[in-house]
């Protein structure tokens, strides 16, 4: 009897300790974001507050959150932030839709059809995923330049219309769909395009959502490609456009800089809350060789 009570106490202590650790870690991971939001509601162009003044107060000592910074950044007369937002949204959505379509077609080919050279071509996809990154930036730039696509939506969209990673991820999912299902459809007289559209795709909603989510975050937060493929202010994406904020306003206007950071972050957080459950699945599948 006594032993049982002791075990209970020990279990409770253990759980309390674990929760304390979990919360401390959450604080470590989220603290910079909390500070970011708090600094963004300080008056425009004020120096960094001391920790004790982190929650802004008006002259009367009352808490005074100054949300006007958001208006000042979003409608900055020198920067078309609304245009950045549109560019990011348009480019990201187009790439997500296009890449999901192109990659799922290829994934179907690799997962469900047999043809000579399949393994070799798939190896090329995998190899490019690992090794193409560092060397392709200059040639792709030259290619886009000779097509006259630099500084246009073409340059921001077309290079993203397929991705080896998405092909790989979707192939993993498609291979798990039992062959009996497509056999059954085949006996009913369905061709491969029908099986792809009516059997495999509907069964893979979660997989497609996962691939789309990865693409969404990859494109929205892409910094390097828009940086080198565009140069007019009107063609910048949010990520590149608001990095100008840091440079042109220097380190002095911290509330402005943090407001810009929140504006970049907010759409990402909202989308993440909707799709977060797919991330665990997707990453786990992506790692299985």
């Amino acid at each position: 009897m006594r032993r049982k009570t002791w075990d209970k106490v020990r279990g409770a202590l253990w759980a309390t300790g674990l929760y304390a650790l979990l919360i401390a870690l959450a604080a470590f991971l989220l603290a910079p974001f909390v500070w970011m939001v708090l600094i963004s509601v300080h008056p425009w162009n004020t120096p960094i507050p001391a920790i004790s003044d982190l929650i802004p107060r008006g002259p009367d000592g009352q808490v005074h959150l100054d949300w006007s910074n958001y208006g000042l950044v979003l409608f900055d007369p020198n920067l078309p932030v609304a245009r950045f937002l549109f560019n990011s949204a348009f480019v990201t959505l187009t790439v997500v839709v296009g890449q999901t379509l192109v990659s799922s077609l290829a994934a179907y080919g690799f997962a469900k059809l047999h043809f000579r050279g399949r393994e070799l071509v798939f190896a090329l996809f995998l190899g490019s995923m690992m090794f193409a990154g560092p060397v392709t930036q200059i040639p792709v730039y030259l290619l886009l330049r000779s097509l006259g696509w630099l500084d246009s939506y073409w340059a921001l969209v077309v290079p993203g219309l397929s991705s080896a990673f998405s092909v790989f991820l979707l192939r993993q999912f498609f291979m798990q769909i039992p062959a009996e299902l497509d056999e059954a459809a085949r006996i009913d007289g369905a061709g491969d395009f029908r099986i792809y559209a009516r059997v495999v795709m509907p069964l893979s909603k979660a997989a497609l959502a996962t691939a789309a989510a990865f693409t969404f975050f990859g494109v929205w937060t892409d910094f390097f490609n828009p940086l080198i493929y565009t140069n007019s202010v009107e063609m910048r994406t949010l990520e590149v456009g608001l990095s100008i904020y840091k440079n042109s306003y220097g380190g002095s206007n911290w509330p402005a800089q943090m407001t810009a950071a929140v504006i970049v972050m907010l759409p990402l957080l909202v989308v993440f809350l909707f799709v977060q459950r797919y991330f665990v699945k997707g990453i786990m599948l992506g790692s299985i060789k």
Partner: peptide, 11 residues
């Protein structure tokens, strides 16, 4: 999932 630019400004 955060933006690299926002993270850099933050840090």
């Amino acid at each position: 999932i955060s933006s690299g630019v926002a993270i850099a400004m933050l840090w």
